[in-house]
Write a protein that binds this DNA or RNA. Structure first.
Lengths: 204, 204
DNA sequence: CGCATAGTTGACTACGCTCAACCCTGGTGG
DNA sequence: CCACCAGGGTTGAGCGTAGTCAACTATGCG
């Protein structure tokens, strides 16, 4: 949940951190904002996204409990993406300056941060790979595979509107809807409420 | 060029590093390979790419002198992408174990590594943003803008075949060709050999 | 000089987007 | 308790644009 077990944190950093509550739709920071802190999600759900030219929004990641955002700004003046709370959320705020100071003395902290950066990297790579799949039905199928393999299950429970999922995938809601009905018709998945079962089919 | 000025490196790491020569087309490591080292390009040009399902290749980054690859593997067992030399190249090899050991004692090293991870992150985000632009001509234009803004110039000198550039952009060579002639016809760019001039036009 | 490869151009196709209408659900207020 | 409304989800028709496949040209290298 926290960057490090609280009692292992240097005292000066322990004093600097705080928590913050966010309501749905509330912006934590905007891309371009001066970066003053790094955040770790305690509860709730944040969306990390970039608002591109021509006002499209590109979802970089959905950060849930234990995940962080704003790490890249540790070594860059400003945030490179925006973050918004999708539901009521609580985040831990680690002031950038205190963190940077503490880095030098606490190797554990360093390692944790690096790990987070690496994870963030891998997430982005996954996103890129998804976007590279042109055919919508394959992209969706692959997306479902990622989700299930991460959870070690064969189903996905969507806790967010399909509309959102669609844009995450770079699709329109209409297209996603069509794709899902098609996949179900073909027997690749079965749907039930917000739950989608993946049949381990040979369909690629 | 190096991860750190050589004389500032801890002696045990200094002894562990080596250099390696690569010929065009030579694979440095493959995605899925056990990660044993991190590499910094001394001379030449490497392509970091992911081979997706259905044998498409997604270029993550072109690493040139001073840039690195394999950092993400510092905290993961295996490499998450492949790296190939596009031309004759020379890389510095930093064994992972030695690096991890040295991290604890040399804050400078840590900072350098984190910086590299952050840069890698931003590069990936840029890629994603590009891919999100559907219209090929806009995507290409934006790509040219990124390149020129990075170089502080108004032209781009392609040292690699357009064919490669096309796939980097997620386009086919045919489409890229058409787009370039169109952009030139519309006056957004002018071409001459491998050089493309960007007219600061209002065209978006 | 001849070959291999990159680049260009054309005709056709496929697929996701747009825009629109419609259904369905959950929440609200009378 | 029902009427209404708003939003998400679904479905349809038509369009635009990048892909595909192919032919052809240009270029560089042996």
């Amino acid at each position: 949940m926290n960057l490090l077990a609280l009692d292992r944190l240097p005292i000066e950093l322990r004093e600097a951190i705080a928590t913050r509550r966010l309501v749905p739709g509330q912006i934590l920071f905007r891309q371009g904002d001066l970066a003053t802190a790094l955040f770790v999600v305690e509860t709730g759900r944040l969306k990390l996204f970039r608002q591109s030219l021509e006002q499209r929004s590109i979802t970089l990641q959905i950060a849930r409990s234990g995940e962080s955002c704003g790490e890249t700004a540790l070594f860059s003046e400003v945030h490179s993406y925006s973050t918004v709370a999708e539901i009521v959320s609580q985040v831990v705020v680690y002031p950038k300056q205190s963190l940077l100071l503490a880095l030098h003395q606490y190797p554990q902290l360093t390692e944790d941060l690096m790990r987070r950066l690496v994870v963030s990297n891998l997430t982005l790579i996954t996103q890129l790979e998804l976007r590279d799949i042109r055919a919508a039905h394959r992209r969706v199928l692959q997306y479902l595979r990622y989700l299930t393999s991460a959870e070690q299950t064969n189903f996905v429970n969507f806790d967010r509107p399909l509309k959102e999922v669609a844009t995450d995938l770079g699709l329109t809601p209409a297209t996603l809807s069509r794709v899902l009905t098609r996949l179900e018709r073909e027997g690749a998945i079965t749907r039930e409420q917000n739950v989608i079962w993946l049949q381990n089919s040979a369909i690629t």
